[in-house]
Simulated scan of single mutants.
Amino acid sequence: MPLRSVSAAYLAHAGDLASNPGQQAAYDSMGHCVVLAGPGSGKTKTLVLKLARIMAEDVGAPRGAACITYSQECARELTRRLERLGLREAPNLFIGTVHGFCLRHLLMPYGRLADLPVPFPLAVATQRQADQAMKRIGDRLFGVGHPPPPHGCLRHSVSGRSPPQG
């Protein structure tokens, strides 16, 4: 559902930012916004209200907005708070991680232009699939039973088909 059709419920909460000049400045800023502050300082609240305002007042089709974070947990929290304001998922809004943004908006649409072998449909490997792939790689490179490769090598694995058996 397009966010424009939703009431301006965010305005009732935007007044809460007036008591904090930093939050108010971030909310009122035009263009890109990066909020750097300590825990519990109201970063998420400020970003959610700013994003709600941007979607309601500034972004018209075919334009869109992206709210990029570093963790899935943060992306889920941003989405939950937007939903509390009555804002639902929209095709012109991306809320997610850096990796998700690159995958959905760069690799998938433009990978074929660079002759990258991007399988379709693309699926992100589960943690179990990533751990199994890491074990197979370790077994092939270092021998069966050898300690696995360094932690984190496949943390952002992408899989388009079943892994090769061997």
Rank of each mutant, 00 (worst) to 15 (best):
V34W: 06
P149K: 06
Y27L: 08
L103G: 00
G38R: 04
I95C: 06
Y70G: 04
C33V: 15
R155M: 13
V6M: 05
V48D: 07
Q165E: 05
P163A: 14
L47T: 01
Q129P: 03
M55L: 13
A37V: 07
E83W: 07
K50N: 11
R84T: 12
Q129H: 04
G166C: 04
S162A: 15
Q72I: 12
P149E: 13
T79L: 07
Q72H: 15
G143F: 05
L113P: 02
L85E: 00
K50I: 08
Q23Y: 05
F142W: 09
C74L: 15
P148V: 11
P39Q: 05
L85M: 02
R140L: 13
D131T: 03
S159R: 15
F142Y: 12
G100H: 03
Y10H: 10
Q132A: 15
T69R: 05
K50P: 09
H13E: 13
R81C: 04
S71F: 01
A12V: 01
Y110V: 10
T44S: 03
G152Q: 11
A125G: 08
P91N: 12
A61P: 14
I68K: 03
L51C: 07
I95F: 02
P62L: 14
P62W: 14
A61Y: 12
C74D: 03
A25W: 09
P109K: 06
S159A: 12
Q132K: 13
A90T: 06
L47G: 02
F101G: 06
H146M: 14
R161N: 12
Y110N: 13
A37Y: 05
P91V: 07
A130I: 03
P91R: 13
E77V: 12
L85V: 02
A65H: 11
V48S: 07
V118G: 09
G111A: 04
N20L: 07
Q24F: 07
L93R: 03
L17P: 04
P109D: 09
